[in-house]
Design a protein around this nucleic acid. Structure first.
Length: 757
DNA sequence: AGACCTACTTAGAACCTTGTGT
DNA sequence: ACACAAGGTTCTAAGTAGGTCT
């Protein structure tokens, strides 16, 4: 960090970041957050806006929190007895130096794996949910649907209990990845079935062979999307398409603009509709079929345990959807056959037969130094595509946990590393100065390292590949970074940096053309070699993990219980901390297409409730709060009119417009009925006010998160144990924060509330 | 030393399911 | 009961990083 600006050594800055979408709309994301210190204030400010609202949110769902409370109580009493076990095993098999970080941790003897497997009621991250599953039926008056669903879940989880609880055992994480491995091989996408829908060129029907039709159909599918707006996409596709034409066809079909795929497009739309409206029986049958396939091909046996496979189907052929300005976007991704696929399987295991007659596997290997089950080369860039186990597997889980352990280790040496790179700002060697500043930017701004890229890829950069054109040196040690990063997401950020770093950057820019490398004396390999020397296992990406997790931990610690008292509010707080991390890591998403529309609708609703409140006030002979009577009545008329129009538009055939209009009016007026009696009217006002507050929260959240994606950091950067301990501390059911998939991914995260990253 | 290759993690968009309000 | 939005899952592109080859 920058000690002279930033007092909080460990926390990365949440900077004055503006996110600009590709079309040039400029949005400020947390504009007044400039450093951890100010951030505190900001958070509090936001909280205040929300404080009032949160009570609204909880009220309608009182039943749930009460239930939840019970579950938590029971589960936390379970866990207090043995959770220290899991946290001690956690650290002992990874990093002893982190031991002193956690003074609270009792060193209890490890449970023998055998006994812990079945006998002890060991809680997992999913325990509270199990309790919920068991209690819910009594509680919710036996709703058929829920009961059935719960049962399924329960069986699934009970299954889990007999399974591989690897995180409780001593792990040998180096060495071979597996001892035995068997699986049924990948599934291939179905062969293309021609539909015969007509294709026109220059208004005339051109008969297509199945191969030609297939590719035309790929394109037709994207007609309404942004892909076809890219020139490269159209050009690349057309080149592929023409490549499939006969010499004769080529003579006429020369211009994509004259190709008419609209009939195929319509056909595809209709087919989607038909699929959607299949009978329930059909859907069920299909689901059953899918499940059967999943059962057979979706699992591998590895070291005696059944593990889920992440992606067991080979990617189907299609058009390559490269992100951003990828020069190859729109090219044809060729169909993959068994003869393209190499299988990795245990020695002596049954090699699955090739599912396509006449094609044999490209190769069968028995390599237990790797974790893939199969791979093939894709036709666009010659890249390798793999079949791997799912994130819930031991192999993935161990690697994931290790990643966080490395990041925690960084915590112990971050101070000296920071001192080191700051010192090198004034080193005599230009190379050392550049390395220092690059590292500083990676640490301070959570930049990616930025490997070199080829000409045939989108022009995106990271720290080491930054060019002079990507940085502007402003006044007062301020820099503005503006570049396209991974996935062509724009990183646009103005931030004040250390003066000594600023000086080095001035040097880096001096006399260089915009297209030249900012750090021309530095390579990624050098940088990582340097980091390896500082700490075992350290590389540039660890800084992102470290800064993301430490930020979450620190932000969560700051929570003011009195401001966030209910579970709902605490979850809101958690999400806000999560958001800070997402902004730090520049995790963006495209804003919802109809955001302004949605927000407008909410505004309308709020206005409507305000009007209703005022109507109540008028009846109470009080002065209306927001509008005068005439305005309100005007709007009410308008509302009724719109409602009638809408209802007429979707009316049933046997009704006349008049009938609909009459009914709608009656319903509308009933909804406007204000009861008699002061108390009743006041109750009504209360109800409306709560609605308004709820809508306002909704609006703020939507707005705050319109371009920020929380998921990526949750899945990849935040040590799940921080979240679990936060949940335990405040009695929040983990499943409120971690989806099923995440709970499955992090079975090893069941620590007690004293866990510290 | 650096180009290339392999194996893995990280990423947003597309798609699908579930929950919620009317 | 139904529409629609929210949220979760799936898909596959796009990174990182270490090893190997020249």
């Amino acid at each position: 960090m920058i000690p002279d600006i930033d007092e909080d050594e460990d926390t990365p800055p949440i900077v004055n970041k503006k996110i600009k979408t590709e079309n040039g709309v400029l949005d400020k994301v947390s504009p007044n957050i400039t450093s951890p210190k100010t951030r505190t204030t900001t958070t509090t400010t936001t909280i205040t806006t929300n404080k009032s609202t949160s009570s609204v949110k909880t009220t309608p769902t009182t039943r749930k929190p009460v239930l939840i409370k019970k579950e938590i109580d029971s589960s936390s009493s379970d866990s207090s007895s043995d959770s220290s076990d899991s946290s001690s095993s956690d650290s002992s098999d990874s990093d002893s130096s982190s031991e002193d970080e956690k003074p609270k941790k009792a060193v209890t003897k490890k449970p023998s794996p055998a006994s812990s497997k079945k006998n002890s009621p060991k809680p997992t991250a999913t325990t509270p949910k199990k309790a919920a599953a068991k209690k819910k039926p009594e509680d919710s008056k036996g709703k058929k649907k829920t009961t059935r669903k719960r049962k399924i879940e329960e069986t699934e989880e009970e299954d889990d209990n007999g399974k591989n609880r690897w995180w409780e055992e001593e792990g040998d994480e180096d060495g071979p990845k597996w001892q035995t491995l068997s699986h049924n091989g990948p599934v291939f996408p179905p062969a293309y079935i021609p539909h015969g829908t007509k294709f026109l060129y220059d208004g005339k029907v051109v008969k297509l062979t199945p191969e030609q039709e297939e590719v035309a159909t790929f394109y037709a599918n994207y007609l309404e999307t942004d892909h076809v707006k890219k020139e490269a996409f159209r050009d690349n596709f057309f080149a592929e398409f023409r490549g499939l034409l006969t010499t004769e066809q080529k003579k006429t079909i020369k211009n994509l603009a004259k190709c008419d795929f609209s009939h195929i497009h319509t056909f595809l739309q209709e087919r989607k509709e038909t699929r959607k409206s299949r009978s329930k029986n059909e859907k069920d049958a299909e689901a059953a079929e899918k499940k059967k396939l999943q059962e057979k091909y979706g699992f591998a046996m590895i070291d005696g345990f059944k593990e889920k496979i992440g992606n067991f189907t080979i990617e189907p052929p299609g058009l390559f959807l490269g992100r951003g300005a990828h020069p190859k976007t729109g090219m044809l991704k060729q169909r993959i056959y068994p003869s393209d696929v190499t299988i990795n399987i245990g020695k002596g295991e049954n090699v699955p037969p090739s599912p396509i007659p006449g094609h044999e596997w490209k190769d069968v290997v028995h390599d237990n130094t790797v974790t893939w089950l199969a791979f093939w080369k894709e036709s666009i860039n010659g890249g390798t595509k793999y079949i791997w186990l799912a994130p819930s597997s031991k192999i993935k889980g161990q690697a994931d946990r290790k990643k966080f352990e490395v990041a925690r280790k960084l915590k112990d040496c971050i101070e000296s590393i920071r001192k080191g790179y700051i010192k090198s700002f004034t080193n005599d060697s230009e190379e050392k100065r550049q390395l220092g500043v690059a590292l500083y930017l990676i640490d301070f701004l959570a930049l990616r390292v930025g490997n070199e890229k080829g000409e045939d890829q989108a022009d995106t950069v990271g720290c080491c590949s930054l060019r002079v054109e990507h940085i502007k040196l402003g006044k007062d040690n301020t820099i503005t970074l503006d570049f396209l990063g991974k996935d062509s997401m724009r990183y646009f950020n103005t931030v004040k940096i250390r003066p000594d770093a600023y000086k080095v950057l001035q040097e880096c820019v001096k006399g260089k053309k915009p297209s030249e490398l900012l750090f021309d004396d530095l390579s990624v390999a050098q940088l990582n070699t340097h980091l390896k020397k500082q700490m075992d296992g350290l590389s540039a990406k660890v800084f992102r993990t470290y800064n993301a997790s430490i930020t979450l931990q620190k932000e969560l610690n700051k929570m003011d219980e009195s401001e966030y008292s209910t579970i709902e509010e605490k979850i809101l707080y958690y999400n806000r901390c999560n958001r800070e991390v997402a902004i730090l890591c520049n995790h963006q998403k495209a804003p919802p297409k109809n955001l302004s529309e949605t927000l407008g609708k909410i505004d309308d609703k709020i206005l409507e409730y305000n009007d209703l409140i005022d109507l109540c006030r008028i009846k109470l002979k009080l002065k209306p709060k927001t509008s005068d009577k005439d305005d309100i009545e005007e709007r009410e008329k308008e509302r009724l009119k719109k409602l009638i129009e809408a209802n007429i538009a979707k009316k049933e055939e046997n009704k006349t417009d008049k009938e609909v209009s009459f009914d709608t009016k009656a319903t509308f007026e009933r909804s406007r009925n204000i009861p008699d009696g002061e108390q009743k009217i006041n109750d009504k006002i209360d109800k409306y006010e709560k609605q308004i507050k709820k809508l306002e929260i909704q609006k703020t959240t939507k707005d705050e998160l319109k371009t920020v994606a929380l998921g990526t950091s949750k899945i990849n950067y935040l040590d799940p144990r921080i979240t679990v301990s936060f949940c335990k501390k405040w009695g929040i059911p983990v499943e409120k924060i971690f989806s099923k998939a995440l709970r499955d991914k992090f079975p090893w995260s069941d620590v007690d509330k004293s866990y510290k990253f």
